[in-house]
Amino acid sequence: MSATPAAWAAATTRTAADEPAAPALIRIAGVGKRYSGGTQALQGIDLAVAEGEFLSLLGPSGCGKSTLLRLIAGLGEPSEGSIDWPRATYDAAGRPERSIGFVFQEPTLMPWATVFENVFLPLRLAGARRRDVAVQVEGAIEGVGLAGFVRAYPRELSGGMRMRVSIARALVKRPKVLLMDEPFAALDEITRMRLNDDLLDLWAGRGWTVLFVTHSVYESVYLSSRIAVMGARPGHIRELIAVDAPYPRDEAFRMSTAYNEYCRVTSAALRGAMGGSEP
């Protein structure tokens, strides 16, 4: 597409946002979430997630982006609206078989278990036997660059390595969708950039979909093919921004004027979402 980022920003209001041509992988319609305490965390969320896209949920803290991600994961039910998986099969109880991997803000590893045991967990809970899936587990660990640490305990790893284990665990069942809740927020800048690059490498060409929650404009622009900018009180989607730069992206993209322009547009949208007030 030849449109400049600025032109895109003008064109991307909520209704004009590129509704994918293929049936959406996840269809979120009119979703709201009110907690029993009375807090309205989300209101009127409409979003269609296309297969294979890298979609970031960007917003200030308290805008409900993590809440939305957890609802998509099935951790909690929306108070109104629906989250459908048009292409998923349904189990006997009528729940969609979601095929998701989830990465939390903290690595969330079991400290008493080795890297292997931690990554093996999702398969183990599904009833797989260690012997049958050892290759698959070790493959997932190699995939995040931790081949030599299969027998290590989380305590013995750095923060970035622990997060890699967490990603390997999320990917070991080869899910269709990877949900990531500010996974790199607690890491230092250098580790964060490396993990961003490695995440893009993992994602490239595998056809899975990523939903990535972040509060960093720069991270969202670098990673995403589409950004949903969210505002708070109650949480809503303010604007959808398509980041049309081609993959693979690397350091050159980070230095490009296009990247800067996307960041500027996205920052402006975020400021708009916050109503001009500082969080």
Partner: peptide, 27 residues
């Protein structure tokens, strides 16, 4: 037990017994 780990077990459809044996007991 760490709340996120609890969520993780729920996400992967752990049974009560799996949760007790693999999560709560070691914790």
């Amino acid at each position: 037990v760490d709340h996120n780990l609890r969520d993780l077990f729920q996400l992967y459809g752990a049974t009560r017994w799996q949760r007790l044996r693999l999560l709560q007991m070691p914790a």
